[in-house]
Each structure stands twice: as structure tokens, then as C-alpha cells.
Design a protein around this nucleic acid. Structure first.
Lengths: 216, 216
DNA sequence: GCCCGATGTTGACCGCATGAACATTCCGCG
DNA sequence: CGCGGAATGTTCATGCGGTCAACATCGGGC
């Protein structure tokens, strides 16, 4: 029986994906805290514990949603960067691309606050569970980071009075700025900032990043 | 009866503060999610619902803890800045103070992850409750922000190719960087970074901030 | 000295995560 | 084709947490 057919069947046929979809919706609506097994099951029309046939528990569902959210974020960044006009000077083009990626990042956070929060929500396993290595591998999957890294690479200039700055470190610095800004605007004390001021803050932060990156 | 006397009495005498203390401990141990009314009551040796005589609910307790955490954060920043040697050049001194405040900020986040997370945890009221104005007033109380602002003021230079950058916006930019970095290192994908690399990332970010601020 | 209000306590209800035991269905093997 | 085990759902039960209402106790002002 196909999930697409209307008839109710004992076996859903695509429960896993249906649950993921519902969970993503929940995250979109209210962030990771709102991702609740029972509610997802309810929306899919299945009993509360059915999810355990497909996920180890709420944590795993949440991690799946997180992966989804991270992919959406990266896609948003690339979309914004793709719409950015190029430049003759390759250095200028690289700088523009970096700024565009950052703008895309922040725009995604502001437009999809729930998903954005889910993208970086840390799922704490009950103490004593889960192999650190497994988690680590999965953790690293964050294309947003890679995109920023590539843009910085293209920029290719990392000097400092005291020696050389590694590109990953520079990448982390840039990421820190956009991530922090996003959270402050979303959840933090800069929430409720009227839109024009908010844009000014974004512009200033981006200016700091670009200028600061120039100086590294 | 004093809270200090050993005898058990029906009335605690200082329940509110005792609960706050327990809640702060909980936040210190496991962040805002771990701040649980029942557990706080348990630790204080009181029935689960006693807290409702002093707090509207978990949300209010959490907000109280948040205020406490924010104060601790600001104190840590000031402490670090106070230990920073001055400089003859006032501009240099100002720059150093700014960097020191940022370092203090990040150090606090790394040393007190639970409290730090609690300091910026957003308590979502059930939809339809709470006057926005009240919350707003309380929201703004974040001395960390003020400290950064003052340091920037002392720096006193905000120019950009396209005009003038407001000091609050610059402040937000700096804050974004340190806040984002703290979260990435604490909870985010940069968790588990070995200490030396972590320090490198912190240094790089601070360099970006200082250099970037210079360029504003 | 008594009474009211502040402060705690009990008991109850609801939602959630999760595990165990049971039911239904699907599918490959004979 | 038919059957039996593996998948996949369901029901039942436990435990935790937030919160409300009704009841108990204490403390201080009259």
C-alpha cells in the first residue's frame, strides 16, 4: 500500500519520512523544543510509540531534523551568493561572495528562526550513552562552515603581526560573528529591534567581518 | 525562625532565595533545561508546589536565574579587564580593554557553560501571556552589553565608506562575535576542539574584532 | 489571646519520553 | 500457493515535570 493512497492501513508505508516531515514542521513552527514525539505521531496519525520503530528516541529524531535544517541553511546561503553579481577583480569578487554568504546565513536565521535554532540545537544524550566518535562524525556535517571556508580560501590572505592565522580559525571567526548576530537578533537581547536598526546592525557586523578578515 | 537555624519548621523563612540558589546551582550544573521546579524544591527540602508562593512558575524562576547569570558574566568581564595592564596611549589602552572584556566574556562562557547558557536563554511565555513592555524592560538589563559599549565609546572611532556607523551597532557587532564564538565552542560544531586550537580560534576572532572595529 | 493572611502541603490532572507485551501485516522460502 | 518469522504498529504501564485547587500551619498585628 502506497503512502499516497487514501485508505488507512495498519502499516503506514513511509512512517519514517512522514515523521521527519512532521518534526521539521514542528521545528519550523517553534524550534527544537517543540519537536515532540507524540505530536509528530499525532500529526501523522499514528500511535505515540510508533516512532520508536524508526528512531531510537526523541534525540535521534531531533538530530535528523537538525541535519535537514543545516542543509536548508547551506542552500539558502548558496542561493544568496549565486544571486550576487561577480566582479572583475577576483579579490573583490571573493569578498563579495563571502559577504553574500553571510547575508544569506543571517537572512535564513531571521526567516526561519525555528529551523535555524534546530540546526544548532545540541542534543544532549543521557550521560553515559552514545559513542563520542559516532557523534563527532555526524557533528561535523555542516556545509555552512564549508561554504564559508571556501569563500575565505578564495580570499586567500591570512597574515597577522604575530605570524600566520589558519584558515579554519579565520573561518570560525567569521562564523562566530554571523552565528552570534543571528542568535542575538532571534532570541537574544537584540530581538524586537525595529527592522531598520536591525539592518544597520547587520551591515555593521558584515563590515566588521570583511574589514576584520582583511586585516588577518 | 531564621533560615540559619537547624530546626525544621513549617515555614522556611527564606524560601525564595533558597530556591534561587538551588536553581542557580542547577543551571550551573546543566544549563537552563536542568532548572526544574520540582528538583529545586527537593534540594531545598520543600514540597514541589511551594515555589508557586514565590514565583509565577518555572518561567519566572528561570528569568531570575538569568538575571543572576548575566550579572556574573558582567562581573567576570570586569574582572578580566581590571587585570589588564593599561597603556600610555589612551587609544591603545581602550583597545586592550575591549579585548580584555571580550576575553573575559569568552572565558566565563567556557568556565561556566551552564550559567552562560542560562544567561541568554529565552523564556517563551505561553502564547498570549505577559505584557511585551514588561518583558522588554527586563530584557534590556544586560550589563555585558553596556560594558562593551563603554569600551567602544572610549575607542571612539566609527567611520565607514558609506557614512557613519552608530556605536550601538558596532557594539552589537562585537557582541555578536564573542557570543557566537562562545556558543560554537560550547554547544556548537566547535565543541570538542582541542584546547590549543580553541585558543587559536579565540585569538583569531579577537583579532578580527579589534581589526574590524578599527576599520569601522 | 485571636484571627487573617502568608506560606507550605497534599492530591490530582495533564503532557511527555520510554519500555514491554501484544497485534497485524508483509515477504521470501519452500 | 501458503506459512512463519521479521517489520511495523498498538496498547498498557511507569516515571518525571508543570501547574491548579483545597487544606494545614504559622506569625504577627489588633
Amino acid at each position: 500500500m502506497a503512502a499516497t493512497s487514501g485508505g488507512k492501513t495498519y502499516h503506514h508505508g513511509d512512517l519514517r519520512n512522514a515523521l521527519i516531515g512532521a518534526a521539521v514542521d514542528l521545528a519550523t513552527e517553534g524550534g527544537p523544543e517543540r519537536v515532540v514525539l507524540r505530536e509528530a505521531a499525532r500529526r501523522v496519525g499514528v500511535s505515540p510509540t510508533a516512532a520508536y520503530r524508526h528512531f531510537a528516541g526523541r534525540g535521534e529524531l531531533l538530530r535528523t531534523v537538525r541535519g535537514h535544517a543545516r542543509r536548508r541553511l547551506a542552500a539558502a546561503m548558496e542561493g544568496t551568493a549565486a544571486r550576487e553579481p561577480g566582479a572583475d577583480d577576483p579579490a573583490l569578487a571573493a569578498e563579495r561572495r563571502l559577504a553574500a554568504l553571510c547575508r544569506g546565513y543571517i537572512a535564513f536565521a531571521l526567516e526561519q528562526p525555528g529551523l535555524y535554532r534546530a540546526a544548532f540545537h545540541t542534543v544532549r544524550p543521557a550521560p553515559g550513552h552514545g559513542s563520542a566518535a559516532d557523534l563527532h562524525a555526524e557533528e561535523s556535517e555542516c556545509r555552512a562552515f564549508v561554504l564559508l571556508g571556501e569563500a575565505l580560501e578564495a580570499l586567500g590572505r591570512f597574515r597577522t603581526p604575530s605570524g600566520t592565522v589558519s584558515r579554519p580559525a579565520a573561518c570560525a571567526a567569521v562564523w562566530s560573528a554571523v552565528h552570534g548576530l543571528s542568535l542575538l537578533l532571534l532570541d537574544g537581547p537584540l530581538r524586537r529591534l525595529p527592522a531598520p536598526r536591525r539592518d544597520a546592525v547587520v551591515d555593521t557586523t558584515l563590515a566588521m567581518v570583511v574589514s576584520g578578515t582583511r586585516g588577518l
